[in-house]
Every structure is written in structure tokens, then in C-alpha cells.
Amino acid sequence: MKGRLLPLYVVALYAFLHLPLLILCAFSFNSSRFTVWEGFSLVWYRMMWNDGALAEATWNSLLIAAVSTVLSTIVGTLCAYGLWKKNSKLLSGSLYLSLVTPEIITGIALLATFQWAFRYLQIQLGMHTVILAHVAFSIAYVVLVVMARLRTADPALEEAALDLGATEWQAFRLVTLPMLKPGIAAAALLAFTVSFDDYVITSLVAGVDSETLPMMLYAMARRGANPVVSAISTVIFVGLGMLIVASERLQKA
């Protein structure tokens, strides 16, 4: 009995995981505004394409994600290497804790900090505060991915380089770093994804000039049924999905 029931159950569970998203994508191509299939159409994509505010929010999101990815990848990679040489329980513990801290708490704590910075240093909320926040929460992801790669590395290689007269920097730069490249690329893709997708923290630390795509999507989703939201969702889902698949491949490379 079990022999047939289990595979059936597994198929049902995969359907539960994937069908909601696939249905959403399918209906973004519906010509009707209602959830009854009338025919294939790209009308909602055209509306999305012609929406100036949406384009601006997308540009903001891409800019924030790009800058914070570069920064968090550099900081996270150096950190992972340093921790690999000798673990610091306080630092790695703080990084892991930041991963499990509920986003809303990270968000309000950063908001309180930026507000404090505003009072004493006149720093306003804006693109820069969003970028700083994104770097802060992305570093832990980068460390995790790069560290996984470093665990497969042989420390004897660097020792050999040092014995042969390389400086510490040369040993890092010429021996370990090249080997880490796929891991770093995978970490960067992941950092880009978590940055591009973030709503909760971003919405708390954003200023008037830094509305992002998820913030706009959230506002539209709350306003009610709107097929344009399905079209935007489809683009985000496909785009981020490709980044994640690429990241997974690189992690196994």
C-alpha cells in the first residue's frame, strides 16, 4: 500500500509548492481582468512596461541590489576567509543570529539607529540607508556560502605557498582566492536576490526618493485584484529563479 501512496503524496506536495506560483504566472497572460480564462494576451505586460513609476522603482531596486551586492560580497568574502583561518565565536555567532532575527526586528532596530544618526549627524533616510541596511543583512548569506566552499579547501596549499616564500597576501590572492571564485559568484547572486526581494526592512528604512519594486508591489497587492501585479510577479519570479538556479550550480561547481 505504502508503495503507491507515498509517490502520490509527494506529487501532491510538489503541486502545493509550485502550482500557486505557476497559476499566478499563467493568469498574467489572461486577456480578462477577472480570474476566468478568456484568451492569451500581453496587455498586462504592456501596461507594466508603460508605467513610469514602476520603471523608476525597478531602477531603484536594481541600483540598491547591485551596490549592496558588491559591498556585501567583498566584506563577506574577506570575513569568511578570516573566520576560516581562525574562528571568532562572537563574530560568527552574531552573523548567524542576524540570519534568524525576525526581519521586522532588524528593520525597526535599523530605523531607530538611522533616526538617531539623523538627530546627531543629520543623515536623512534615502538610498544610502537602504543600501547600508541591505549590506548589513546580506553579509551573513555571503559568509555562509563562501565558508561552505572554504571547508572543502586544503589549508596545506597555503602553507606550501608560505614555505616557498609567498607573503600572506600573495597566498590569499594567488592560491585561495582563485579556488573560491565559483563560491563567491554564487554568494553574490544570492546576495543580489535577497536584496532585490526585501520588503520588510526596506520599507522601514527607505526615504521618499527610494521606493523599491517590492514596496510598490506590496502597495498594489493591498489595493486589490490587479492583473498587472501578476505580470510583475511573473517577471520577478522568473528573474530571481534564474539567479538562484545559477547560484546553486556555482555552489556545486
Binding site: Y14, L190, P214, E248
Partner: peptide
């Protein structure tokens, strides 16, 4: 990977998918 894939793609989009349903 098939379990993880929807997880890594946008949390907002996944929540919206349930609003849509």
C-alpha cells in the same frame, strides 16, 4: 532543489500568489 526553488524566489510574490488564489 525543487523544494528550495520557490523558497528562494521572492517571498512577497509567493504570498501574493495565495492572495490571488
Amino acid at each position: 532543489n525543487l523544494v528550495m526553488l520557490p523558497f528562494w524566489t521572492s517571498f512577497l510574490v509567493r504570498t501574493y500568489a495565495w492572495m490571488f488564489l
